[in-house]
Design a protein around this nucleic acid. Structure first.
Lengths: 148, 148
DNA sequence: CAAATTAGTTGACGATGGAAACTAAATGCA
DNA sequence: TGCATTTAGTTTCCATCGTCAACTAATTTG
């Protein structure tokens, strides 16, 4: 094994702590929990995604994701729609409020990140992006570390 | 703002989901929650760290971190020691079991990451590590996004 | 030495997500 | 066609977790 691998994992884990629950919420993200935000983002990115697909892609059980969508719907960020072709399937769409929230939160975080990375030049930013993309694709292909 | 910033944030957030609670636990990490593992890692990295310092560095309230240490102590991963110079202060040390757990879990994750990044050449790995280090340092300097 | 500050603990509480049982719809196959 | 099986989603019960606020004990301040 390459000697950098453990260090890379360590860094990923520490970074994730910042971008996970510990770095989330507060005045930033309205009344959304991290899980709710992640689900809303998926709903925004993949319009008409089903409950099941949401659960799989976020690695949350179906009862878990069902309740997350309950909360998002109650707070008017998304709406459920029964599929016309298969009555069992429930498709989720963002509402106007949902779309706005995604934009607002994304902007807020981008400003934060911009402050942090203000001194980094464009080429380096491009490299950061490429690197993260490479990492994400690799990890996504492999699936979650847990059973899945 | 550089156009890559929002993409970088998005990638960081998605990656963090994998390395946060959603990608954690199960057969991998014995009976440790992610928060417990992060605390244990800090205790391991900074021997004799105080409860207060742990809370600050992990961005957890003092009652929260106190209970996390309770659990780690009950499961015999760490031990508390009263400071001899200041009776209010409680220093935390990993036990043998704690040290072993850190090594074991770190290895487990490194193997996982090694599988994922197996095809990546050494130079690229070095770049990944450098990039993540740059990111982490920048974010660490800035502090958590929330009040703190 | 009394008041204020600081470190840490505890109890009550709310939020959250999983397991299992359940409903309803679709599919398989005889 | 018709019943058994599978699939999507919901609901109930429950355990875990971290926060807030109140508390104890030790230290510092003046």
């Amino acid at each position: 094994m390459n000697k950098d691998i453990p260090d890379i994992h360590d860094l990923l884990q520490d970074l994730s702590w910042y971008f996970g629950n510990q770095g989330f919420d507060d005045e930033c993200c309205e009344d959304l929990s991290l899980a709710e935000y992640m689900a809303l983002k998926k709903v925004y990115d993949i319009q008409n995604i089903t409950i099941k697909e949401l659960g799989v892609s976020l690695n949350i059980t179906k009862s878990g994701i069902s309740k997350i969508i309950d909360r998002l719907e109650k707070k008017c960020y998304v709406s459920r729609h029964q599929s016309s072709s298969d009555g069992r399937i429930c498709c989720v769409l963002p509402t106007e409020k949902g779309n706005n929230a995604i934009h607002k939160i994304s902007n807020r975080y981008s400003e934060y990140l911009d402050e942090i990375l203000g001194a980094v030049d464009e080429e380096a930013l491009q490299n950061i992006k490429d690197t993260l993309e490479l990492l994400f694709k690799a990890i996504q292909d492999k699936g979650f570390i847990k059973s899945n």
